[in-house]
Design a binder for these strands. Structure first.
Lengths: 124, 124
DNA sequence: CAGTATCCAGTCGGATACTG
DNA sequence: CAGTATCCGACTGGATACTG
């Protein structure tokens, strides 16, 4: 997912923006949020996660989990059993993200009606 | 605040996820964040905005502003002068987004070193 | 069950050119 | 100055098939 796009590599005083941009590349995507949200209740296996996150494809779930694991937000634990079993759980860093998502969710819940109304006005 | 689960009959946190998804589709994009960040200091004209938001193309700035206007986060004011002048400014709804971005930015600043470190570990 | 590889259609976004 | 339209390459992500 997060890829190096063809954009200006450096901008003079974009210090909070740059950090924020990095975070949003990680967190600002649909599947990431849903995965973290589900994992915040405890560890889950791959297929359980796929069932929980409605609409995610096998491929995207894999990629999302890889990304989160790479960034140290999720820990992957594989059991050498047959059939194989792999648990995913949030790390401390991953858990620290939870309150942020709650704040976002709260804002979303509070304002989504206003936004939908604004859209209707604009679209007509 | 997000008491959640008090009235969740079947799926624990499926509902906030949907609302959150909507919001992230709007806010979780690079240009949107940068535009809102810049406008939070006061109204700006189109070209000023383009200069401020490093790397944004003319086209994407237009599209971003349209989207924000549509959602009622930004107000567009055109002056019938020659040459034309158009001011963009945050609405109250747009301003309410600012603290959220600050929280995100703070988390980003706090944890980006940890994330970068995790990436190095993972990539080697 | 978990994960990888390949294919390919749809979308995104930059560059460019043109209008009022 | 502000905005729109078009072209087109790059990237995304779903579907599918295969491995351990």
């Amino acid at each position: 997912m997060s890829s190096a796009k063809t954009n200006a590599p450096s901008s003079p005083d974009a210090k909070p923006c740059k950090a924020l941009g990095n975070i949003l590349d990680r967190v600002g995507d649909k599947w990431t949020v849903m995965v973290v949200g589900n994992l915040s209740n405890g560890p889950m296996r791959f297929n359980a996660l796929q069932r929980a996150v409605a609409g995610v494809s096998h491929r995207m779930l894999t990629l999302t989990l890889r990304g989160l694991e790479r960034d140290g937000l999720v820990r992957r634990t594989a059991f050498a059993t047959v059939p194989p079993r792999v648990d995913y759980e949030l790390t401390a860093l991953g858990h620290s993200l939870k309150p942020l998502l709650e704040v976002l969710a709260e804002w979303a819940k509070t304002n989504q009606v206003a936004i939908e109304h604004a859209r209707e006005l604009f679209d007509q």
